[in-house]
Nucleic acid binder design. Sequence first.
DNA 1: AACTCGGTCAACCGCCCAAAA
DNA 2: ATTTTGGGCGGTTGACCGAGT
Length: 260
Amino acid sequence: MGRKPCCSKEGLNRGAWNAIEDQILIDYIKANGEGKWGNIPKKAGLKRCGKSCRLRWLNYLRPDIKRGNISEQEEDLIIRLHKLLGNRWSLIAGRLPGRTDNEIKNYWNSTLGKKVGGEQLKQSKDQNLKKAKTQSAAETPQFTAIKTKASKCSKFLVTHQEPYKAENVDSIPVHDAKLSDGTFSTTSEETHSVNSTLDFDIADLLALDISDSEFWKSCQNNNSIEEAESSGVARKTWFSSDQHLQFSEELLKDWIRYDM
DNA sequence: AACTCGGTCAACCGCCCAAAA
DNA sequence: ATTTTGGGCGGTTGACCGAGT
């Protein structure tokens, strides 16, 4: 029943890699490039499963890997992205050059999770105290993090969750959100081309949208987009006439690594 | 010195999805 | 259209290490 394993486990080394195995793998990938992981053990003469080779290379041996000493800026970005994307470690890692999903996941589980969890607990206690004191109407969260399952679709239907009543948009079709060259499909001049290595998916789009919470809140408070705009709150996301998602340079710089 | 405990992190596991057959 | 395969992902495990007793 179920899938057969990626390779026969018999006669294969397991556990920690040694320096000789590392060197064999490095030499092989330098000569032949990444990919075809299943063939590597046989061709390189490694007694390792292909998956194990892939993992060792991607998480440890790759030359562009940054190790340890996660800076305050990186930490802050991880926290913010985690708030938006949940445990989407590979997506989060994709915004942190040189960091791997495994490293970020470990860092979160060992350090940040507790830190953030502790702060959230404190904040929620403070909030409850405040609520009890003021007896004010419960503050309903308008911009909750949406946890999605990883999707590699190229076409999405994004349900619009913002209180954006002025145009009465219930759903925004986003066509060909990621084209083969990594750009967005739109005719607008406002479009920014993004680095083709980015894996833009539904969570990214939602994350961008949620990031504009200040503007949408202002819309709700002012009951119109025009008043929100004139009140000086910067708008970071919008939809063009053909209903393609657009986003400001400011927002891109904030969240996304990109090439202009 | 010996032991326990908790934190860290590399590695493994099983599942999922898309591409290939 | 269906099955198989390869690769990617998040969750979990277990070895290792340092601090505390």
